[in-house]
């Protein structure tokens, strides 16, 4: 949709964007409303990208490990099936990196097979030492995905960020990218991340955040709000360890108050109900899991008091 929007004449593009903003507002309103507010079945919750106002569904799709299936035809088709359910449920943002081996070509296979190249919000990364090698890597990634250009290009784990970031911002200015970001995970190099957020006009920052790993709440999330930077959340399930552990426990009855039907939705709704978060990107290789995860982008979200209760509950388990 992002690409499509860019190629469409302005007249047809604007109303659509306004419509999307409306949806985003509905999402934000649902979030701010206290628990017990009216659910809006059928609408996917979106958040505006702070730098543009473009609406993005609050649940995206990660591809680390899950989509690295090499050239195995059956496994590639299984990934395409996960993508089909993701898009059918209203999903848009898919995140990958050259670091994830075959994940990029596997995404490309899925996009081609499903004909969803225009719909996807393509979020990829540059991950190579030395700024001079960045453009070639980005071009290679673009060919793997089969998209005309990336929506978002992030500097993976801050690798050579001093060199890549100016190049990415120049690509954005030249219309070769739509958004620029940086990533880290599991609390690494947060000082540097904060400094970059202060000093550079980035659109997105990607960090780890979940009900147990909440370090970013202290500084990075407030800073993102203050600076108008979108936040993409990785490792929502601690690479699966958290959800596999917690799934053995009974889901508390009060999870129904924010319409979480399972633990995946409990964990994801915790993340995306933080007002600074634009979207979370759980990875999965399974259709039933992507459906569960996308369910977190619908219905009510927990309010601040409920979020505190969620933390206390999970920490006590």
């Amino acid at each position: 949709m992002a690409e499509e929007a860019q190629q469409m004449p302005r007249s047809s593009y604007l109303p659509r964007r306004v419509a999307m903003r409306g949806l985003a507002a509905a999402g934000a309103a649902a979030m701010l409303r206290p628990v017990g507010a009216i659910a809006r079945p059928g609408t996917i919750i979106t958040r505006p990208i702070p730098s543009s106002g473009e609406a993005l569904p609050v649940i995206g799709l990660g591809t680390w490990i899950t989509f690295n299936v090499g050239e195995d035809p059956a496994a590639r088709d299984a990934c395409a099936e996960v993508m089909r359910h993701f898009f059918d449920a209203g999903g848009r943002a898919i995140d990958s990196s050259p670091m994830y081996a075959s994940s990029q070509p596997v995404i490309g296979h899925g996009l081609r097979k499903l004909g969803r190249t225009k719909e996807v919000f393509s979020a990829d990364k540059v991950w190579i030492r030395g700024g001079s090698r960045g453009p070639a890597q980005i071009e290679q990634s673009r060919q793997y995905w089969g998209v005309p250009r990336f929506d978002l290009m992030q500097v993976h784990n801050l690798v050579s960020w001093e060199e890549h970031l100016p190049a990415l911002l120049a690509m954005k200015a030249a219309g070769q990218l739509r958004y620029v970001g940086i990533t880290t995970s599991e609390g690494r190099r947060h000082r540097e991340i904060e400094q970059i957020m202060r000093d550079h006009p980035i659109d997105f920052v990607q960090v780890t955040y979940n009900v147990l790993d909440r370090e970013v709440e202290a500084r990075i999330l407030p800073l993102a709000q203050e600076r108008g930077i979108g936040v993409i959340v990785n490792r929502p399930f601690r690479q699966g360890v958290l959800i596999r552990r917690i799934e053995r426990q009974r889901l508390p009855d009060w999870a129904a108050e924010f319409e979480a039907a399972n633990w995946a939705q409990f964990l994801l709704k915790f993340i995306v109900s933080h007002p600074a978060v634009t979207c979370a990107i759980p990875a999965t290789s399974r259709v039933e899991h992507v459906r569960e995860n996308m369910g977190a982008a619908r219905g009510r979200l927990p309010d601040a008091a409920m979020r505190r209760r969620m933390v206390a509950h999970v920490e006590a388990l």
Partner: peptide, 10 residues
């Protein structure tokens, strides 16, 4: 970088 399933399938 990969799941055990992917490794054995290789």
């Amino acid at each position: 970088l990969f799941a055990p399933r992917t490794y054995y399938r290789l």
